[in-house]
Every structure is written in C-alpha cells, then in structure tokens.
Computed example of a mutant assay.
Amino acid sequence: MPLIGTKEMFKKAAEGGYAIGAFNINNMEIVQAITDAAAKLQSPVILQASAGARKYAKGPYLRHLVEAALEVNDIPVALHLDHGADFETCKSCIDDGFTSVMIDASHHSFQENIEITKKVVEYAHARNVCVEAELGQLAGIEDDVNVSAANAKYTQPEEVEEFVSKTGVDSLAIAIGTSHGAFKFTPEQCTRNADGVLVPPELRFDILAEIEKRIPGFAIVLHGASSVIPKYVKIINENGGKMKDAVGIPEDQLRKAAKSAVCKINIDSDLRLAMTAGIREHFIAHPDHFDPRQYITDGRAYVQELVEHKIKEVLGSDGKAVEVLALVK
C-alpha cells in the first residue's frame, strides 16, 4: 500500500463522525507501535514529523521507516509535516515524498499568513500534496514550537472564511483551548476534583461550532490534544520520574470534538509518556539489563497500547481502513 494524502481520510471522517489520529514519529519503535496498532484495529492513520523529529532522525530515515511499515501493514497511511515553519521547509518535505504538509504561519499577521500559506498550497497542490494551515495560536512547548500563555490566542471565527477561500488550504488547525506539551495548564488555570486531581478548563466548543457554521464540511484539526494519561504519569513517577501536576485534555472532550467537524487530532506527548513509562519501569524491574532491545521493547508495547486505546475509545476510527482504501484503490 503506497502512502496516500489526507483528503480521502478527511472525507470519510467527516461523513462518519470520527477523527483520524495524527501521531508524531521519532524513531523505528514508535513507527512500529503506531502502525501495528492501526493495522490491528484496521484504522487509517497519519504519521507526522515535527522539526525536532527531522533534526533528530533526518528526513530520509523517517520516510524509509514509514515505507517499511507499509510493506508490513496494508492500511491507509499519510506522511505529514507537522508545523512547517516556512515555504522552504514545506517544499523540502514535499520533494522528499511527504503526502501532506502543515505550514504554520500563525505567528505572522493575518494577511502574511494568507500569502505564505497560498504559496505553499500552490506548490503542494501541483504535486498532489495536501496542505494544513493554522489560525490562532496554541500555548505550550513542543520541539521548536514555543508559545507563552500570554501570546496564545483563540481562532477568530470571522476570519476563517476569508482565509480558506483565499489560500485554498485543505484543512485548518484552530485554537480552542488545547495546548502543546505534557504541562498544558498551570494549577492556577485548573480546578481540583474530589480526589485532588487537576481538571483543566473546558475547550471552547462555542468557537468550534461557529467555525463549523461558517465553513460547513471543511476539515478542522486540533493540535496539542494529548490527554497526559494518568496511568503513564503514575508509572513514571513511581519509577524515579518527576512529573507533578502534568495535565492534558480530557478524553471526553476529544470524543466530542471527533464527532464534530474535527477530522484530525494530533497526539505527541502521550506517546512520549508511554514510551518513557515502559523504559523507566523496565530499568527498575531489571537493573542488570543493558540491551536497548530489552527496555525499548517495553516502551514500544506501551506506545502500541496507547494508540490502540486512542483509536478505539477516543477517535472512533477503528474498522474504517476499508472505506478509505476504497477511495484510493
């Protein structure tokens, strides 16, 4: 099965009221865990590479790892550039075989964002590559993306029609309260439930609903949507880690989003937490081990467990591979 774009995925997701998981990749084991989980549940999946991933693993390594996964698993997979900083970065990834790219010019003015995005769209569409852009800015830290809470801003619904119309973009990442990283909210921004667990503020579904009205049927994307699952945080902390007050987006809110116009939900920090939990747990249980294949195997197992959970219990994309494949074969 060759790599595909995201257009077919989003079409079926919009019709079926589910979302596609966009999982960040950094090495072989993470690629294996994600694609094995997707194949087991027969789910389409987006594998995305950030600036940090491309710096760490190099673009050709990532592309060939994904191609190897496709030799093993016959599922719909798109290879996506996450947070492309400029036209040159997007062009490089398009030329290198990526089937989807994100141009993130959200830190520029509205008109500059339109101009930069349109340039990427024109180059990408001529090569049958899909383009995602962003309006509004999410707070938090993820690789080269670092936006303070003071500089974060919600997407303005009144801007989306003009932006989509003038750029020709295929999907739009919006800011409605999600945030990058494992420490998405400070304790002061949250409340505590009866068990003393931090509860983050509700996502701005009112903004999402208004955007849906203005661009009906258009593919919406949520970044910074890891839930910082307590199970993995607990394992990390019980095995020498220090992750006090790590908090993410509640999964019930993500389920609600997946049933709306949101067709793509990005997950990165949860993968890192699962991998770290497995490795830390292994080292404490087996202090004599030094073979990376031993401890990374446990980390990979937790990542696969996490991805299976997200696909089946949050995204609702399990069993949907067949309908996407029918559009591309």
Rank of each mutant, 00 (worst) to 15 (best):
E313T: 00
F283C: 12
K11G: 05
F205C: 01
R255M: 08
I235F: 11
T99Y: 08
I211Q: 04
A209T: 05
K58W: 09
E122T: 06
C90A: 15
Y61G: 03
Y154Q: 14
N26M: 11
E8L: 04
N73S: 07
V145E: 05
F87H: 08
I4W: 08
A14T: 13
R63M: 11
A69N: 03
I311E: 09
V131G: 04
E71I: 10
G52W: 11
L65H: 01
S50G: 01
N27H: 13
V221C: 08
A14G: 11
K11T: 13
G84K: 00
A22S: 15
M243I: 04
S171D: 12
P287T: 03
L41D: 10
I20T: 10
Q253R: 04
G97F: 11
D291N: 14
P216V: 03
H309N: 10
Q111L: 15
H108M: 14
L135W: 11
G136Y: 09
D86E: 06
A14S: 13
Q189S: 06
A182Y: 08
L70S: 04
S100G: 02
A126R: 03
E132T: 00
R300M: 14
E112D: 15
N24Q: 04
V228A: 07
K119M: 13
L70N: 02
V199W: 15
N27D: 15
I4Q: 03
I94R: 02
E238R: 04
S179V: 12
K184M: 08
Q48C: 00
H80I: 02
D195K: 10
N113V: 08
L325N: 04
G136R: 02
L327A: 03
E15R: 05
F163Q: 07
Y61D: 14
